[in-house]
Each structure stands twice: as C-alpha cells, then as structure tokens.
Design a protein around this nucleic acid. Structure first.
Length: 682
DNA sequence: GTAGGGTTAG
C-alpha cells in the first residue's frame, strides 16, 4: 500500500510513533502539511548520514527542518543515535524553533547519547534558562547515562548563572581543573556580566588561553571598557579570527564605528582569515555610519569569498540596506529565501523605521512563527508612529495568545498609554509589572515616570523616581519636564541642580524642561541665565522649542520688544508655537484684533500649514468670534486638520513645522512687524 | 565521527 494514498491520521496511527504525535501536537499545521508534502513527493523516504549533512547544510527555513525531521521519523533513521544527535544539535541553534521543540526531540530519540543531553543543557545555558539545566542533568543520571567531561562544565555554568556561590564552591573544591572547566566558569561570569569576578578568575587561571582572552575582550566590550579590551587585545601573543572579531564588535557596540572599520581593514592587511561572524559586526558598523559605499563594497566581498548563504550574514545585509532605506535591496535579499526568525523581525523593524507601518503589519501577520521580539517590534512600532490604540490592541492580542511580555514590550505599551493619556490602562500595566515581579529597570522606570508625569500624577512619578536604582539623562528629563509641565517650577529647577550635582550632563531636552519651568514661574532673569548657559557652558544649540519658550516667557512678562527682537534674531525659522507666544503677548496688551490679523497673515504666507489654522481658530474662540471660528473650522475640516484636545495656543501644534524649509530668513516678520508697530502706536 | 570563545532583530 502506498503511504501517500492513506489519510493523514491513518498514517499517524499506522506508524504509531510517539514521536510523530509529539511533533504533530507541537507544530500542528506546519508539521501536518510538511509531512503530507514529504509523503506525497517521496513515498519511500530514504536518508543516510551524508544526505542528512547535506540537507542540514541547506536547511534555512522552518519547513525545511520539519521535512528533515519528518523524513527521519518516517524512515526510522531517528533511532540512529549519531544521526539523532546531529539533528538535535542543529535544532538547538535553529532560530525558527523554540527550545521546547529540542526538548521534545530528545524525548523522541529512543537511544539518546550523552552528547544529545549535553547539547540541550548547553542550549539552556545559552538561551538564558539555566534553571532547566539541573533537572535535566538529574534525569540524565536516572536514565543511566554517564556524564562526560563536557557535561560537568555545562552544569557548573548553569549553577553559576543561578546561584553563583554554590557553583563557586564546587569550582573551588574541585581537585582537578582542566582548561575546559576554567573556561566554563569564566564563561558563566562573562555571561552574567560580572566584570570583577571574571577578571579575578581570568587572573588566576593557570594559563591564559586564547579562548579565555577572547571572551574577556567581549565582556569588556559589553561593559563599555573599550580601553581594557584593546589593552588585552594588544597584549595577546596569539590572536585568532575570534580575537579580532571580538575587538571589532567591541568597537561596534560602543559606537566607535570608524575604529571598527579601520580594525577590519587592518585585519585583512594582516591576512587574518575572515568569516561570516566578523562580517556581521562590520556590516552593522556600516549601517550605523550610513556608509553606503563601504557597505556595498563589503557586500561584494561577501559574494566573492562565497559566504553568501549564511543566514546571519543575510540578516546583517538586509538590516544594513534597510538602515540605508533601500527597501528594494532588502526585499530582494529577503526573497532569496535564506530567512529565519530574525530575518522576519529585521524586515518588520526596517519597514517600521522607514514608515511603512501597514507593510510591517502585513509581514507580521504572514510570518510562520512570532516570537517575543516580533511582538515587541510591532507593538513599539505602533507606539512610535502614534498609533496608540493599535498598540494597546496588539498588546491585548499578545496576551490572549499567551505570549509573556518582557520589559521592552512593556515600555512600548506604556509609551502608547502616555500618548493616549490613557492613565487607567497605564496603571493597569504598572499593576501587571508589580504582579509579575518585573524588575523596574532603567527604561521601564523612565517610561513610568514619564507616563505618570504626563498624566498629571506628579507624586506617583516622584515615588518611582526615588525608588530607581539607576537613572539616565532620559529619566531626569522626564522628571524635570514633568514637574515643569505640572506647575512645580521650583521643584523642577531644584531637580535640575541635583542632576548637575550628580554629574549628569544636560541635553537639549533638559533645557526644554528648565526653560518651561521658568516660563511657568515667570522667571525672566533665570530664563535668560539658563538660555545663555545652554550655549556657553554646555555647548548646546537652542532649538525652536527653546526659542518658543523664551518668546513666551518674555511676552507674558510684558517685554514685547525683547520677544520681538528674539524672533527677529533667531537663526532658525519660527514655528507656530513661537508665533502663538507672540500673539499671546499682544493680546495681553489689550489689542484684540491684532491676533486675528497676524493669524490671517500667517495663513496667507503658508496656506498649507495646519498649525496656523488651529492658531487662528483659537484666537477667534478667545475673542468670542464664533462665526469666524466656524469659518476657519470648516476650512480645517476640509483639510482634515485634527484639533489636539487640551492644547492651548502655545501648544496648539505639538510638532515643529518649518515653513521656510532650510531658509533662515523670515519674510513674514517684516509684514507682521508692521502690524505690531501699528499696535504699539495706538 | 559533532561540543568551549566572537554576531544580527524589539
């Protein structure tokens, strides 16, 4: 009887392997379709070691892997313990499959060997779930398998990652330590990023081998200790490809992209063998630099030396082209079909960065398997494009599907709540964080401070700030801006001094908060002082928000001429908020129709400018000229201008519009000045 | 007969 003529379930019953059942429940749809297609195309499946090697070498997609697995199951080749362990070790490094799949595969193998168990345990350590390692080790002993000299270092690493002191005891008490054990314990400290302990182990190693030095360079790189890394690199007597790669990636991770490219050039000059891993870092450096020429040259190099079929390399190339906004090149590469989980995630994030939100969603919906990064990318993409209700909806869907978010996901969701002023949802997420005992890290803490501040809950925001162990300039900015926004101008300025005392350097955003506080407090002298210190002390160029704020501060204090002069002298084009501030000042002088005339003039200059329509509409409203306001509103309606709720004239338009693109002359000012002078004469 | 160290996506 031909297998292909049987219904699928009959087939399953007939071969009655527990394994296929497992497989079937795990990836129901995909497996059933892949098994079906294997059976349909290949009724008498035959496979041996060389075919397996060849197929694994070519295996790039989930479907490819499932076919191999199915084929091995059907043919019974899975019971060959060597072949099974080959399949398993490939599986643990395959990004389209969750680790559970490998674990189930281990169950399926009837005569598994120590190698297979080691492979899974190592994967647990690598994928940061060391807690699964020890139970597996116990099970291994129960199954009468004898651990070998590879097993113990892995278990040691796992223990070390969980409870360092225990593992350390084992290590310290061990009578015989080979270099594998030394490297393992070092690797464990390196993985948790414990620089002090790693250096201690490294210094006490009987012999510093290349492997240990390489992982130390990587650790220094991740810990921002570039100079230590370089020192060690220079001191090494024998450097291999990995050493060079570690140093180049150290530069890359610390945003020293030029240095990374220079070292790569030197590496080639020195005739060191280059491989796909070093290319990944180099391509990433090119992407960050926006160095299209270099990137394309390296693409050529990749084709010439023939390592174009490595998935991680493909991914880096796709990522690079997306960062150059070269969607076509990225799609061409992606469509070659060497994709894995990461390729899909890269495409989605690339589409989002280029503003193609719906395209991203389409990819998201059509990818074979979504992992946490896929969900986070899409959710944060929605959040960053202001599509806050989509953000919350997708987060909701994620939970329905039972995918557990991590800190990054929660940051995106909270920022969406902030944009929507959705305090209740934000509080719900905060409660979720507490309930699931998430650590309030730097990013999560900063986002919470920002959310509570923007929703007016100053005290809650302050409490969270005080509880934070680590802060950054963004945290201080959220705090200072928030205090200023909520009317606590004294406190905002106090926090600014605290920040300076802590040695944190302010940036442009900080001064938006500081000047905002001065504006709220009507502190003209202080305002000038900070405004000048921005340039003179901190070497920061004031932007439109700073000018707008100063114009408003001066205008409110009745210093109309100073405000006018500031607008005239400013090196960048005034935006709608700046003009709004000036109009507010005019109004304060009691001249009611001046705003209207300036508003109309501005629209005449820039009829496409949504902000000016909002401005004029607000002016009419403040003067009680409802008919006129209706008139402007009907124009706005035609132009589909959305009025931002709760915004005053000053914040009528949250975005900075440059109505004279790139041009520093403001011809409007002359016209408007005439009107203002007329007003002054009256 | 494969296994340690270096990499890419939010």
């Amino acid at each position: 009887m031909r297998i292909s003529s049987m219904p699928f379930h009959d087939f399953l019953n007939r071969i009655s392997l527990k394994a296929v059942q497992h497989l079937y429940t795990m990836e129901r749809k995909l497996v059933s379709s892949s098994l079906k297609s294997v059976i349909a195309r290949n009724p008498r499946v035959s496979i041996d070691l060389s075919i397996l090697e060849e197929r694994l070498w070519k295996c790039q997609k989930l479907k490819d892997f499932l076919q191999i697995h199915a084929q091995m199951t059907v043919s019974g080749f899975i019971n060959d313990s060597f072949a099974a362990s080959r399949l398993l070790s490939f599986c643990t490094g395959f990004h389209f499959l969750a680790l559970d799949y490998s674990r189930q595969l281990l169950n399926q193998i009837e005569n598994s060997n120590t190698f297979s168990w080691n492979t899974i345990m190592r994967a647990y350590v690598r994928r940061n779930v060391p807690q699964c390692c020890l139970p597996l080790y116990r099970l291994m002993l129960k199954c009468d398998l004898v651990p070998d000299n590879y097993s113990h270092p892995i278990v040691l690493q796992a223990c070390c990652l969980r409870f360092c002191v225990d593992a350390r005891f084992l290590f310290d008490e061990s009578p015989v330590l080979d270099s594998v054990t030394w490297n393992s314990i070092l690797a464990a400290y390196v993985q948790i990023g414990d620089v002090d302990e790693s250096v201690y182990i490294f210094d006490n190693m009987p012999e510093r081998n290349t492997i240990a030095s390489n992982s130390m360079i990587a650790l220094f790189g991740r810990s921002k200790l570039v100079e230590d890394a370089r020192k060690l690199f220079d001191e090494m007597t024998s450097k291999d490809t990995v050493s060079w790669t570690a140093m180049i990636s150290c530069y890359e991770q610390n945003e020293m992209f030029r240095e990374a490219l220079e070292l790569f050039t030197l590496m080639r000059v020195c005739g060191i063998q280059i491989d796909e891993v070093v290319m990944v870092s180099v391509l990433s450096a090119c992407a960050s630099l926006g160095a299209t020429k270099e990137g394309e040259a390296i693409h050529g190099l990749i084709i010439r030396i023939g390592i174009q079929t490595y998935v991680s390399l493909m991914n880096s190339l796709i990522h690079m082209y997306l960062s150059y906004r070269n969607i076509n090149a990225a799609e061409l590469l992606f469509d070659l079909g060497y994709s894995d989980q990461i390729s899909w995630n890269i495409m989605i994030s690339g589409y989002l960065k280029c503003g193609f939100v719906d395209k991203a969603r389409h990819s998201f919906d059509s990818m074979p398997r979504k992992d946490l990064v896929s969900w986070s990318t899409m959710i944060s993409g929605y959040a960053q494009h202001g599509r806050s209700s989509d953000t919350l909806a997708l987060f909701h869907e994620m939970q329905i599907r039972g995918v557990r978010p991590d800190e990054t996901t929660l940051v995106s969701v909270l920022s969406a709540c902030t944009n929507l002023f959705a305090l209740e949802q934000g509080k719900w997420v905060h409660a979720y964080i507490r309930k699931h005992a998430f650590q309030i890290n730097l990013f999560l803490g900063t986002t919470l401070v920002d959310m509570y501040m923007k929703c007016g809950c100053t005290m809650t925001a302050l409490e969270i700030f005080d509880e934070m162990e680590e802060t950054s300039i963004s945290t201080w900015n959220a705090l200072i801006l928030g205090l200023a926004m909520n009317g606590f101008f004294k406190e905002a300025l106090e926090k600014f001094s605290n920040m300076e005392r802590c040695g944190v350097l302010p940036n442009e955003t900080t001064f938006v908060g500081v000047l905002g506080a001065c504006r709220h407090g009507g502190l003209v002298d202080k305002g000038w002082e900070y405004f000048n210190s921005m340039k003179n002390i901190y070497n920061l160029e004031p932007n439109i928000k700073h000018y707008g704020c100063m114009v408003d501060l001066l205008g409110r204090a009745g210093l109309l001429n100073d405000a006018k002069k500031l607008i005239k002298d400013m090196p960048i084009a005034p935006d709608v908020s700046t003009w709004g501030a000036l109009l507010g000042a005019c109004k304060k002088h009691g001249n009611t129709d001046i705003g209207e005339r300036v508003g109309r003039k501005l629209i005449e200059f820039e009829p496409q400018h949504d902000g000016f329509h909002i401005l004029l509409s607000n002016i009419y409203a403040s003067e009680g000229k409802w008919d006129n306001q209706m008139e402007v509103r009907s124009v706005m309606k035609k132009r589909k201008v959305v009025k931002i709720p709760g915004c005053s004239i000053i914040e009528a338009d949250g975005n900075v519009h440059e109505f004279l693109s790139g041009d520093n002359v403001h011809p409007q000012m002359n016209e408007i000045e005439k009107i203002l002078n007329e007003m002054a004469r009256n």
